[in-house]
């Protein structure tokens, strides 16, 4: 008896097999998503609450001047929509990391990690799978927002796609890196307090940075250094068919750093999981 396809000396895989592995991981993530409808609903309700309640309530208080990419005054709801898209991806990225911690506790993560494919491929595939789910959520949110008279240029819905992909990868990679550092599922509550909320509030998602600069220069610098700000701005410009090159560079750079960090953390040679009793 031989392992399937063991014919190739050294056990190397071809491109087709790499793609089978990738599609299998995406398919499993989609199944998980379908079976957890409450996850989809809560992922939608959260930004919709911000849009329908918070933004409507603060419309008069938080006026927005004309700043790129906008060419005219915009309603506050319009301003925060890109931030809420980024918020969907932030929560999805952290949800993925929660899933990975859960998988590690229940053994599902081991099934993934003992695959003979290279670990970087397994983790990147999982990251992409999670990002695709977040993109689906983001577009569903935009459809609902459209009925709320929040419309972008038609082309913007297309140019938004690569921005959502990149932002989703960056935030997913961050979540993956965090998941490697969490020992138990219970510790995830800390992620809400120490990662999600600070990243979201200290960014340009809810208010333009010039407003923050007026009130606190130190906070402005914090916001500027926050990768989530750049993900938000990348999405904002893409939604209007434009590219913000600095934000693109920052998001790309952070994606690489976070992903490499996660791959190293999950590399058995680093021993990080084992040292914390990760089995």
């Amino acid at each position: 008896m031989t392992a399937i396809d063991q014919g190739q000396a050294g056990g190397g895989f071809g491109l087709a097999q790499y793609l089978i592995c990738f599609s299998g991981i995406v398919w499993r993530e989609a199944l998980r998503f379908i079976h957890q409808r409450e996850r989809f609903i809560s992922a939608l309700v959260r930004p919709l609450v911000w849009l329908f309640i918070f933004a409507a309530g603060f419309r008069q208080v938080l006026g927005v001047s004309i700043i790129p990419p906008y060419e005219t005054y915009v309603l506050y709801e319009v301003y925060i929509t890109p931030g809420l898209l980024a918020m969907i991806q932030l929560f999805n990225g952290m949800q993925s990391s929660l899933t990975m911690v859960y998988d590690r506790e229940t053994g599902g993560m081991r099934v993934l990690l003992v695959s003979p494919f290279p670990r970087w491929w397994l983790l990147t595939s999982k990251l992409l799978a999670g990002t695709l789910v977040s993109i689906l959520q983001a577009y569903t949110f935009l459809v609902i927002a459209w009925f709320w008279d929040i419309e972008a240029p038609p082309l913007g819905y297309l140019t938004l796609l690569p921005a959502l992909l990149l932002a989703g990868l960056m935030l997913g990679a961050l979540g993956m890196l965090i998941s490697s550092l969490i020992r138990q599922l219970e510790n995830f509550a800390g992620i809400m307090n120490f990662v999600i909320f600070p990243m979201f509030f200290a960014s340009s998602a809810l208010y333009p940075l010039w407003r923050i600069k007026e009130s606190s220069l130190a906070l402005y610098y914090v916001c500027e250094a926050n990768p989530f700000t750049h993900a938000t701005e990348l999405i904002r410009f893409a939604l209007y068919g434009q590219v913000s090159w600095i934000d693109l560079a920052v998001v790309l750079g952070c994606t690489v750093v976070f992903l490499v960090g996660a791959i190293l953390a999950y590399d058995p040679a680093s021993g990080m999981l084992a040292r914390r009793g990760g089995s």
Partner: peptide, 10 residues
């Protein structure tokens, strides 16, 4: 099927 995919089996 998921396990099969993780071993490159179509």
């Amino acid at each position: 099927l998921y396990h099969a995919a993780l071993h490159g089996i179509g």
